[in-house]
Design a protein around this nucleic acid. Structure first.
Lengths: 203, 203
DNA sequence: TACTAATTCTAATGCGAGTTAGAATCTAAC
DNA sequence: GTTAGATTCTAACTCGCATTAGAATTAGTA
């Protein structure tokens, strides 16, 4: 009857299948889209029946919300990790490269989660969309700060709109999830070219 | 009973509502996605009932196929138009700008059709997807030729992968349909910045 | 006005979806 | 081995969807 014991042990098993469920859901949502994916398919991929999902998630929407949350979290964490490797007073050039490396690595190594975000942007129930918007906004705020730094350091030339520049970079990065196949070029070589083209492009 | 008379006049009316139906369908498909859009909604937007759609289109899939066809056609035509304005022996710089202007104009002035292509990429019935793939392939071939020209003219420096460069440009262009609002910057100013950044970026 | 073809509507069918309640099974502690 | 709780299954229910056949309506022609 010890409360501590009741909380630690049983949660492990439950969390494990939650994890599997989320992974499979992300996989199918990213490939087929939210509406086209049935709970029956997701459950089957995790080795159970559709009704059993409701022991772990309140609804299909709730499941999607968590997938989207994790998706943005993956990217955000990965970028933060790259930034931490830099000095405290890093240059715009180094910062941009870190952002690109983090964003691209997250997108291409967790394609299921991140592609779900990108693909289903705009075609979700509004409640789901609102929940995802806040977190994405926070992440994009970091990109805005980076661009401001580039402007202040004089690396971004005066005639360029830095907001549009941010959208250009994010656009071409995000689009990679549409065509990227792990068998092709290495992520590192992609990072090099993205960084090089955009750095040369903006000064 | 003259066959000619029977063919010319009545088609006008029929084609007119077909047009409306396609427009409304493109609108809803682009906003909500293929699966999330019901024929009832499309029909209602065109002022009729769901069943009546089947007088004009064989199925929901057939309707989507035509929307996708038009979508790619819009872009392809618009780009061809810009190319035609150039000299026969145009430079890579001029060609790139024409491609960017054509692609961007098509995407942003017919957002319904083109966004449908982009958004629903990958979450459609395979038969629909196969049909769209051929036409898109032909259009991308033109981009490949442009890149090859840039390489041969020495504008694209040696260390850059021209295939990846093409994907970068197309990615950032296509992504604009996600965020662009007609009330913001003019399309022309976008064209200037895209061209400038990528031209400086690749040499 | 009457006839004919074109166009739309009505009503029904069948299917698969998300969801739910309660029964069945599994797990672990005593 | 028994018991209690956690986890999954079964079987239903409701709903909206795409699709269809035939009736109803419209519009043009003679």
């Amino acid at each position: 009857m010890n409360a501590k014991v009741n909380k630690t042990k049983p949660n492990l098993k439950k969390d494990k299948t939650r994890e599997v469920l989320l992974d499979k859901a992300a996989q199918m949502f990213s490939r087929q889209g939210y509406k086209s994916t049935s709970l029956k398919e997701i459950a089957a991929a995790a080795g159970m029946k559709a009704g059993s999902l409701y022991y772990h998630f309140a609804s299909k929407e709730a499941l999607m919300v968590e997938v989207l949350d994790r998706s943005i979290q993956f990217i955000s964490d990965r970028v933060a990790e790259e930034i931490k490797k830099l000095d405290d007073e890093y240059s715009f050039e180094a910062g941009l490269k870190a952002f690109i490396r983090g964003h691209l690595t997250a997108i291409l190594t967790h394609p299921d989660y991140t592609t779900t975000t990108i693909r289903n942007n705009g075609q979700l129930p509004t409640s789901v969309q609102a929940s995802a918007h806040a977190k994405r906004e926070h992440y994009e705020q970091q990109w805005r700060r980076l661009m401001k730094q580039g402007r202040e350091q004089g690396v971004i030339r005066a005639d360029l709109d830095e907001h549009l520049l941010r959208l250009m970079v994010l656009g071409s990065l995000n689009w990679s999830s549409v065509w990227y196949k792990p068998c092709g070029k290495s992520i590192d070589s992609l990072v090099e070219q993205y960084t090089s083209v955009f750095l040369n492009g903006c000064r």
